[in-house]
Amino acid sequence: MEPLTIPPKYQSLRGCRILVTGAAGFIGGALLHRLAGYGLDVTGTTWHAPEAEALRAEGLKAEVLDLASDAPFEPHVADIDIVFNIAAMFQETEFDEAMYQKVNADGALKLCQAAAAAGVTRFVQCSTVGVHGHVQEIPCKETSPFNPMDGYHRTKLAGELAILDFARGLPEDGMVVTVDRPAMVYGPTDTRMLKLFKRVLDGKFVMIGDGKTLAHLGFIDDQVDSFLDCAVAPRDQVHCEVFNIASDDPIMLDDLVQMIAEYGGVSVPKWKIPVAPLWAAGWLCEALWAPFGSRPPLSRRRIGFFTHNRAFDLTKARQKLGYVSKWDHRAGVARTIDWYRAEGLI
C-alpha cells in the first residue's frame, strides 16, 4: 500500500501513540488502515486472536482485547495518547442483551476509566445514531429524543451516557472525551449492505412499504474523517460533546434504490410489499430462531430499514468539528458497486 499524505488538519497526530479497538470490523479496520497509511504509531485490537494475527500478517500492530473480560484494561492503554473505541457487540445472535450490556456499556466505560487513569489525552467513543431510533424530529439533532429500538441500540446508548457522565467528573485538564455517532456506514470492504445492492443489481429487489422512508448514509471515508476530527478539535469544542455523523443529505429509499439501479444498468420493479404482514413474519422468525442462537432469515430490525426514518442535522459537526462530507451518495454508491464487482461479490 502506498503511503498516504497526512492532511494539515491532522498533523498534530504525528508523534501520538494511538489505539483503535474493534480493528477487525468494517469501521475500526478502515480507521486503523488510514492511520497506519499516514505512517502513525497505531495499534489495533480485536476480539479474537486469529483476527489479530491476520492484521499482523499485513504488517500492522495488533493485540487481543475482549471488552467483556474481567481482566484489567490498563495494560492495553499504558503509554497510549489517543483511544478510539470502535469495538462493539453487533448482531451477535448467540448472546443475550446482558452480554451486549457487558460489552457495549460496561466494557466501554471500563476502558474509558482505564484510559483516564493511564494518562490518555483523548478518548473517542463510537456510538450510533440508532440511539434515536425511528426519528421523530426531522432532521434529527444530537439533542433529539432517544428512541432505541433493540438491544444493540439500548446498550450503545447506555454506554455513551455512562462515559459522558464519567467524563464530566474529570479534571479541567484531564482526558478529552467525545462521542461520535455514525449513521449507516457503507463503502468498500463492507458487506452489510451487500444484500440490498445485490438484489437491486440482480433485478430481484422489491420495495417494502411506500419507499418514501428517509435514509441517511455515511460513506466510510467520511466516517473515518469524523473520528480524526474528534481527536484534533480544540478541547472546548468537543469535550463531553456528541456528534451525529453522516454523508451528503438524507435520501428517500426509492431514490437510493434507483441510484443503485442506474449505475448498475438495471431497472427496478414498480410493485411494493405491504409492511404489516412482513413485520409479523419477522417477529415469528425471531421467536422460532431464538432458541437456536442463530440469525433468523427475516427480522424486524431488517424490516425497520424500510420503515424507520433516518435523517440527521450535521450542523453541530460542521461547526464544532470542522467536519465536511466529501462523498455524495451517487459517488459513494458508484465506488461501492465498483468494489463489490472487483471482489466478485456481485
Rank of each mutant, 00 (worst) to 15 (best):
W327Y: 13
A331Y: 05
P291W: 03
V333H: 13
K326Y: 02
A311E: 00
S325K: 11
I337V: 14
N309V: 06
G322S: 12
R295L: 05
S325C: 08
P291M: 03
G304S: 11
P297N: 12
V324A: 12
A334G: 10
R335L: 06
R330I: 04
P297K: 13
F306N: 07
A290P: 00
F292C: 05
P291G: 02
T307N: 00
T315L: 09
L298P: 01
F292K: 14
F306V: 00
L321T: 03
F312S: 05
I337K: 08
H329W: 08
L314D: 01
S294I: 06
G332T: 09
V324T: 15
K316Y: 06
T336A: 05
V324C: 12
K326M: 00
S299Y: 06
A331L: 10
F312D: 02
G293T: 13
T307E: 02
V324R: 13
A334C: 11
F306Q: 02
A311R: 15
R335K: 15
R302C: 04
F305H: 06
A311M: 04
P297M: 05
T336P: 01
G322E: 02
A331P: 01
A331F: 00
R318C: 01
S299D: 08
G293P: 00
G322M: 11
D328W: 03
F305L: 15
Y323E: 08
Q319R: 07
S294R: 15
F306W: 14
A317D: 04
T315S: 15
R301C: 10
G332F: 09
F306P: 04
R295K: 10
Q319T: 13
T307L: 05
N309Q: 13
F312E: 04
V324W: 02
A331N: 10
S325M: 04
A317T: 03
V333S: 11
K316S: 08
F292Y: 14
R318H: 09
R302S: 15
W289K: 00
I337E: 08
K320T: 04
P291L: 03
K316R: 13
R295H: 03
G293K: 13
W289A: 15
L298H: 01
G322Q: 08
D313F: 08
T315C: 06
F292E: 11
H308N: 12
R302Y: 10
P296W: 09
D328A: 02
L314I: 06
F306A: 13
P291F: 02
T315A: 15
G322K: 09
N309H: 15
K316Q: 10
G332V: 10
G293F: 07
G293M: 07
G304T: 05
R318D: 00
H329Y: 04
T315V: 03
G322W: 03
H308R: 15
L314K: 00
